Simulated scan of single mutants.
Amino acid sequence: MNTRDLLTILSNSTGISGHEYFFSSKIKEVFENYCQSVYQDAAGNVIGVRKARKENPYKIMLAAHMDEIGLMVKNIDEKGFIYFTNIGGVDPRILLAQEVIVHGKEDLFGVIGAKPPHLQSAEEVTKAVKMEDMVIDVGLPAEKVKELVNIGDPITFHSSSSFLLNRYICGKSLDDRAGIIVITECLKELKRSELDVEVYAVATVQEEVGLRGAIVSSYHINPDIGIAIDVCHGETPDASKEETYSTGKGPVITIGPNIHPKLSKKIMDIAKEYNIPFQMDVEPGNTGTDAWAIQVTRSGIPTLLISIPLRYMHTTVETLNFNDITNAGKLLAFFIKKLEGELEVDNS
């Protein structure tokens, strides 16, 4: 299976924070194609190990989160309408008219509705509908809904990814299933080589609610270098150019206090050497990614962050260019190959 088709499979899979087990077996199958061993830790992180050819090698950790934002059942009223709350950063403005799946004792298809504009007051028409005023309608009587659905059941968006022109793809949860495909592309490139370093490919859990999977996996692995792969904001007409990056013009390399300066310089030098296009992101503090958690684990881990520009983040039509994924995977593979020998990550 080619990696574009694999990305659509992962995008269409459901796995909100805390419920990644819905599809983590698919990621294990992917990593098994490129790693000597694959296992899952107690938190649910999927960890693949690409062994080195020598004893006591340096350890490189690649981390991309597999969880997505979603919803959770909060209440069921006397007519069978389901009230809900969010898991992760859900913008209420995207919710009206969304199709969803309520994962109760059975998976139930539903739609999110609210009072139509025809019945709203003049004041209500001028305001965005709040999440607490929306309901999910699954078309069943209340007694049947309460038989099949419990408070706390997860709810996911029912959305299928699509290919656009010029190697663009859109769909839900490309944040950060695209990062997992970057890791896959890297592992595919590394499969052709024997390595002096040991590579840990990690699909982390619960990034959207607090970087939790990265915290425990980096503590367990204790790598010499940690590299987070995530998404950043792709440029759109309504967004600031200072805060967005061009899609299709290469992965984004972050610099700032969350990132080890010698590593960021090294990976940029490698990108130039191999003519891999890249962009730069200046982050003065918290990057809000797994890199933030990895950096301060144990006694500190030298960290990098590589991002894929993504339009319409945290919606069901997230959009990116697949060329950026391919280039990011190659860049990471060349970077890892260049690390054979001595790691120069001291702070002197």
Results as ranks from 00 to 15, higher is better:
Lys28Gly: 10
Asp77Lys: 08
Leu96Asn: 08
Lys74Glu: 15
Thr3Pro: 02
Met1Ala: 05
Phe81Thr: 13
Lys74Ala: 15
Phe23Gly: 08
Ala52Trp: 11
Gly104Ser: 12
Val100Arg: 13
Phe81Tyr: 15
Val102Asn: 12
Phe84His: 11
Ile47Glu: 00
Ala52His: 13
Asp91His: 11
Tyr39Met: 05
Leu7Phe: 00
Gly110Tyr: 03
Leu62Arg: 12
Thr8Glu: 04
His103Gln: 10
Asn12Leu: 08
Asn75Arg: 15
Phe81Ser: 10
Tyr21Cys: 01
Glu68Arg: 07
Ile69Val: 14
Ala97Asn: 12
Ile16Trp: 00
Ile82Ala: 04
Val38Asp: 00
His103Tyr: 03
Val46Asn: 03
Ile82Phe: 09
Pro92Asn: 11
Asp67Phe: 07
Gly89Lys: 09
Gln40Glu: 11
Tyr21His: 05
Gly70Asp: 00
Gly110Glu: 02
Asn75Trp: 15
Lys54Gly: 14
Asp41Glu: 13
Thr3Met: 02
Gln36Thr: 05
Leu7Lys: 03
Ile87Phe: 12
Gly88Ser: 00
Gly18His: 00
Ile60Val: 15
Glu29His: 02
Phe22Ala: 03
Leu10Asp: 00
Asn75Glu: 14
Ser24Thr: 14
Leu6Tyr: 07
Cys35Gln: 01
Glu78Thr: 02
Val102Lys: 13
Thr14Tyr: 07
Ser13Lys: 05
Lys28Val: 06
Gly48Tyr: 10
Gly48Ser: 09
Phe84Met: 08
Asp41Pro: 12
Ala43Val: 08
Tyr34Met: 09
Met72Cys: 11
Gln98Ala: 03
Asn12Met: 08
Ala64Thr: 03
Asn75Phe: 15
Phe22Cys: 05
Arg50Asn: 00
Met1Ser: 03
Asn2Thr: 09
Ser24Tyr: 13
Tyr39Ala: 09
Ile87Cys: 09
Leu10Arg: 07
Asn75Tyr: 15
Gln98Pro: 09
Val49Pro: 04
Cys35Ser: 04
Asp77Met: 06
Phe31Asp: 05
Ser25Cys: 07
Ile47Gly: 00
Gly44Leu: 08
Met61Ile: 11
Gly110Phe: 12
Lys26Arg: 13
Pro92Trp: 01
Gln40Cys: 01
Arg93Gln: 11
Tyr21Trp: 10
Val30Lys: 07
Met66Pro: 12
Thr14Cys: 13
Asp107Phe: 07
Ile16Ser: 01
Asp77Gly: 02
Ile9Trp: 00
Val90Gly: 12
Ala97Val: 10
Gly104Asp: 10
Pro57Leu: 06
Val38Thr: 11
Glu106Gly: 04
Tyr83Gly: 14
Gly44Lys: 07
Val90Asp: 05
Thr8Leu: 12
His19Glu: 03
Gly89Cys: 09
Phe109Asn: 14
Ile82Cys: 07
Lys54Phe: 15
Val102Arg: 14
Arg53Ile: 15
Asp41His: 04
Gly104Lys: 10
Val49Lys: 10
Gly110Met: 08
Ala63Pro: 14
Asp67Ala: 00
Leu62Ile: 00
Ile94Asp: 06
Arg50Gln: 09
Thr3Asp: 02
Pro92Tyr: 07
Ile87Ala: 01
His19Trp: 12
Tyr58Gly: 09
Asp77Asn: 15
Tyr21Asp: 04
His19Ser: 08
Val100Trp: 06
Gly70Leu: 04
Phe84Gln: 11
Gly70Trp: 02
Ala97Gln: 06
Val90Glu: 10
Gly89Val: 10
Phe23Cys: 13
Val100Met: 05
Thr8Ile: 14
Ser37Gly: 00
Val73Ala: 11
Met72Asn: 03
Asn56Lys: 15
